[in-house]
Amino acid sequence: MANENQIVGDTFKVGYRFQRYWDTSMAAAFFCCELGAGLFLLSQYFDFALGMLVGLLFAGVGKPYFHLAHMGVPSRAWRAMLRPDRSWISRGLIGIMFFVGAGVAYLLEFQFGFLTGIFGEATGGFFYQVALVISFAAGVLVMAYQGFAMAHSSSFALWNTGLMPISSIAYAVTAGLASILVLGWGALAPETSKMLVNFTLVMLLVDLCVVMSLLHGAFHGTTGGRQSVDLLLKGVYATPFIGLVIAVGIALPALVLWLAGSSYAAVLLAAVSILAGFFTYRVLVFKAALYEPIISFKPRTANI
């Protein structure tokens, strides 16, 4: 029964316990949010309306849907905004509202001249600028806040690192790139697409570095962190992690884009595998997080 590395489930043994409050639907919410913000911001930059629309749908519909699905008492969801002074969840929620609100306004003006149509050229133009700034700023926040929320948890070495928000942004951008490449194929200028392919290649490298640094940090952080890394690299989650997150999510698209970045089929394949890898990553960082054994007095007293 004495097992140093015991994961103890719901038993009354001292040992490591799985994080089990943030589940797959929470992962889906994170995924939608980050993908949506990344796609929107890139589309905004490249004046690509369809991308903006899809990005807003992910962040404004997908994310709330999955988040509510996860929430214990969804009818009280609005209460989540009450403590922006201290809670990243509140900040993020407010950020999303601003992001979606400003993003929609921006898109409507961009596509239909909506703001100038109502407010006239000058005022409408001003609002357009405001919407641009707010949607951009809120978009960045939305990309990053979940990373901040996780980094804030001192429970899990895997999460409790400044790399968490960076990984959120990195993945958000990568996912955004993958999506805009697919959605914008043909619509965007070929050289833009080419540039985006290269950018994606760079981001995949960044993602790989960030993920590896995360694991490295966790491994050397706490014993629980080491166990989490073991779970991802050697344990029950090794197959999805190495297979989906690293091979399918990073290596495969990098190879495909590098060798055949000019073919739509290749880009489509790369994008699908990037998103699959990203989603798996989101799920696995939840699943592999372990609470440390609450206490151990073994070394102190021989006879208790």
């Binding site: 929430m71 009280r76 209460r79 009450l82 403590r83």
Partner: peptide
């Protein structure tokens, strides 16, 4: 308490960290 977005978790004057069941949204943070 610090991460609770709804204010459901709070600390009483006597140091007891409380959860108000009527306010909690069940976000698990």
């Amino acid at each position: 308490e610090k991460v609770c977005p709804s204010g459901a978790t709070y600390t009483r004057d006597d140091g007891i960290v409380m959860v108000d069941d009527a306010l909690c949204i069940g976000c698990g943070t």
